[in-house]
Nucleic acid binder design. Structure first.
Length: 567
RNA sequence: UGACCCAUGGUGUAAUUGGCAACACGUCAGAUUUUGGUUCUGAAGAGUCCAGGUUCGAAACCUGGUGGGUCAACCA
C-alpha cells in the first residue's frame, strides 16, 4: 500500500532524461512528422547482459511512450565472429524482458546490396579508393590522436581502376587482407575516424545469412548509420564511445541523403555495476576457461544468468529506471539492483519454510506420531495468494544459527531455558540439548511445547521475542541449495590497470548446501518458480532440479539486521 | 604535443532550464511486526571540482585551470 504510494510519487516526478527531452523537442518541432522510430542493434556474437537491458529499455521504451516503433536489427557485418546461436538467445532475452519488435526483425546483412551500391557510388564520385597496402602500413599512416596521418599512395588511383578492383575483390580474386576500400576524407583530421577509414574488407568465410554470395563485407562504421537511414530510424540511441564516430556517420549520410531526413544519434552512458564487469570478451573468457558454469551461470550479469538466478524482468526494468541515462561514466552499486529484486519479489513470491543448515529439535511433550496441519499465509503482502497447510510433528528441523548454547545479549532465538515461537505453530521452550563431545557441535535440541499457544488458539497472543521457521522432519523434502555471492571481491575488477580481473575472482561466490530440508508443498514447484524462504531470502528452482532432489538458487538474501549487529 | 565528452552527499540521479540543492539506494536511530523481512517515522551526510567573470540572484551562462573518460581493429 505504502510502497505503491512511493511508486506513485515517483511516477509524478516531472523529470525525464536528457535523451527523452531531445526526443520530446523533436516531436514538438514536428521533425519526421512527429514520428519516433528507434532500434536495438546487437551484434550476434555473444549473450545479452544487463547493460544491454539498459539500452533495450530505452530503445523500446521511448518508442512505446511516444507511440512509435522499435526495430530489432542484428548488426551482422563480420561473419567470422557471428553465429545463429547468439541470434536465438538474443531474441529470447528481449522477449523475456517483455519487449516486442513484431515483424520488424532486420539484419545489417539485408542491406549488403544497397551498401555495396553506395560504395560503388562513392568510388564513382571520387570519394573512395582501393588501397593495396597491408594493414600495418595503413595503420602507421593513420598517425596518432596527436599526430596527423599521411596519405596513401593509392589515394589518387583512377576511378575506373578502383571500380574494377572493388568488383574483383568481391569476386574473390584477391586474398583476405590484400586490399581494402577506403573512403577519401581527411588524413589530417583531428578525429581519427575521419582519416580515410576503411569501409570494405575481403572476408571469405561464409556468412550465416548470405552464405558465400559476398566476398567483401562492410565495416560496422559503414553499415550502422546507413542501416539506420534505410530503416527510417529517427533516434539512434547508443553508448558514449560512439560519440567520436558521429561525424563520420554524418558524413556518410550527407553523401547518401536525398531529403531533409536523417537519423539523430544521441549517446548515453553505459551501465557499470560494482563487483562485476560487462565486457563481452571477458565474460566469454570466464565461460571458456570454466570459471563459471556457462553463460547462464547465476553469477553472471547476463540476462540468462540473472533469469536463472531468479531475477524478474520487472525488477531489471525497475533498476534500469532507477539509474537513469546520463553522460557521466558511472559505476552503479549492486545494492540498488538487489533492492529492485527484493521490492518485486516481496510482493510476488510465496513464503515457504526451508531450512538450510538443519538442527533437529525434539519436542518431548508432543505425542510421537501425531501430525497436525497448521495453516500459514502464503504472502502477508497479498491476501489473494491464499493460505496453505504445513505438517507439524514432534520432530522438526530449525536453522543451526537459531540455537546458541551461550547466547549474547540480544539473541532472540532458541537457547537453554528460552522460549520462541515456531511460526504458525506453537511456542516451545528449550529444556536441553545434545552436544558432540569431540567436535562441540550441537546435535539435537530438546524442548517442550505449550498446547495453548497454537497460532489462532487461546493463548496465541502470548508474546515471545523470537519466531523461527521450521520443517517437520518426517515430511521434509531434501534439497540442494546454491548460495551465490558476488563473482568478484573488487568493486571494479576490470578497471585495474596493473591487475588482471581474474585476480579478483571471489573464491566464495558459490556455496553448495546439500543437506537442506524444505516443506512438502515444494514438491509441486516448477523450474524457475520463485519463493521466499522465510527469514532467509528469495530462492528459485534451478533447471538442474529433479523430482528426487530439488535444487534451489538463492536469488538474494533478505536484509539481515541481526547479522549486521554481529559484524 | 591533438580532438571530443564529462564533473552535484558514500553510490546513482533531480533541480519546472538563472530563483530556498531534491529523490532513491546505502548508513544510523526509533515504532510496528507470529519473517531480526515488510511497513512507518526520524536523523546524519553535498553547498554543486577549483579560480575568476556576467547577474539583484549561478549547480546551471562565459573564460581559464584541475581531474576523469573516449579516439590510433581489415572488431562492433
Amino acid at each position: 500500500m505504502n510502497e505503491l504510494n512511493n511508486r506513485e510519487k515517483e511516477e509524478f516526478r516531472t523529470s525525464i532524461s536528457f535523451i527523452e527531452q531531445f526526443i520530446a523537442e523533436d516531436i514538438k518541432e514536428g521533425k519526421n512528422e512527429g514520428k519516433v522510430v528507434t532500434r536495438f542493434p546487437p551484434e550476434p556474437n555473444g549473450y545479452l547482459h544487463i547493460g544491454h537491458a539498459k539500452a533495450i529499455c530505452l530503445d523500446f521504451g521511448m518508442a512505446k511512450k511516444y507511440k512509435g516503433k522499435c526495430n530489432l536489427r542484428f548488426d551482422d557485418t563480420n561473419p567470422v565472429k557471428e553465429d545463429v546461436e547468439y541470434i536465438d538467445s538474443i531474441k529470447e532475452d528481449i522477449r523475456w524482458l517483455g519487449f516486442d519488435w513484431e515483424e520488424r526483425e532486420f539484419y545489417a546483412s539485408d542491406y549488403f546490396g544497397k551498401l555495396f551500391d553506395f560504395a560503388v557510388e562513392l568510388i564513382k564520385r571520387g570519394l573512395a579508393y582501393v588501397d593495396d597496402q597491408p594493414a600495418d602500413l595503413i595503420s602507421a599512416q593513420k598517425g596518432s590522436p596527436s599526430q596527423p596521418g599521411t596519405e596513401s599512395p593509392y589515394r589518387s588511383r583512377p576511378v575506373n581502376e578502383n571500380l574494377d578492383l572493388f568488383e574483383r575483390m568481391n569476386k574473390g580474386e584477391f586474398d583476405e587482407g590484400s586490399r581494402v576500400l577506403r573512403v577519401k576524407i581527411d588524413m589530417t583530421s583531428p578525429n581519427m575516424h575521419m582519416r580515410d577509414p576503411i569501409i570494405y574488407r575481403i572476408i571469405k568465410s561464409p556468412h550465416h545469412r548470405t552464405g558465400s554470395s559476398w566476398m567483401v563485407y562492410p565495416m560496422y562504421d559503414f553499415a550502422h548509420g546507413q542501416s539506420d537511414y534505410f530503416e527510417g530510424i529517427t533516434h539512434s540511441l547508443c553508448t558514449l564511445e560512439f560519440e567520436v564516430h558521429r561525424p563520420l556517420y554524418d558524413w556518410f549520410i550527407d553523401q547518401l541523403k536525398t531529403g531533409d531526413y536523417r537519423p539523430r544519434q544521441i549517446e548515453f552512458n553505459r551501465l557499470n555495476l560494482t563487483y562485476t564487469m560487462m565486457s563481452k570478451r571477458k565474460l566469454l573468457e570466464l565461460v571458456q576457461e570454466g570459471r563459471v558454469a556457462g553463460w547462464d551461470d547465476p553469477r553472471m550479469p547476463t540476462l540468462c544468468g540473472l533469469r536463472r538466478r531468479g531475477y524478474t524482468p520487472e525488477a531489471i526494468k525497475r533498476f534500469v529506471d532507477l539509474i537513469g541515462y546520463t553522460k557521466v561514466e558511472a559505476i552503479n552499486d549492486v545494492s540498488l539492483l538487489e533492492h529492485a529484486i527484493r521490492e518485486d519479489l516481496n510482493m510476488k513470491a510465496p513464503r515457504v519454510f526451508g531450512v538450510l543448515n538443519p538442527l533437529k529439535v525434539i519436542i518431548q511433550n508432543y505425542p510421537e506420531g501425531k501430525v497436525e496441519n497448521v495453516e500459514l499465509v502464503n504472502n502477508p503482502e497479498d491476501e489473494s495468494m491464499g493460505k496453505r497447510l504445513v505438517p507439524f510433528s514432534n520432530e522438526v528441523y530449525i536453522e543451526q544459527d537459531d540455537f546458541m548454547e551461550n547466547p549474547p545479549n540480544k539473541f532472540f532465538r532458541l537457547a537453554p531455558g528460552m522460549e520462541v515461537r515456531l511460526k504458525g505453530a506453537y511456542i516451545i521452550k528449550c529444556t536441553g540439548f545434545k552436544k558432540n563431545a569431540k567436535s562441540g557441535a550441537i546435535e539435537e535440541v530438546y524442548c517442550t511445547y505449550d498446547p495453548e499457544t497454537r497460532s489462532g488458539g487461546n493463548a496465541s497472543d502470548k508474546k515471545v521475542k523470537g519466531t523461527l521457521h521450521w520443517v517437520s522432519a518426517a515430511q521434509a523434502l531434501n534439497a540442494e541449495v546454491r548460495l551465490y555471492d558476488r563473482l568478484f571481491d573488487h568493486e571494479d575488477p576490470s578497471g585495474q590497470k596493473d591487475d588482471d580481473y581474474r585476480k579478483f575472482l571471489n573464491p566464495d561466490s558459490l556455496k553448495i548446501l546439500t543437506g537442506c530440508k524444505v516443506e512438502p508443498s515444494l514438491a509441486q514447484a516448477a523450474t524457475l518458480d520463485r519463493f521466499q524462504f522465510q527469514r532467509l531470502g528469495y530462492f528459485c528452482i534451478d533447471p538442474d532440479s529433479t523430482v528426487s532432489m530439488l535444487v534451489f538458487n538463492r536469488t538474494v538474501p533478505l536484509k539481515d539486521t541481526w547479522a549486521k549487529v554481529n559484524r
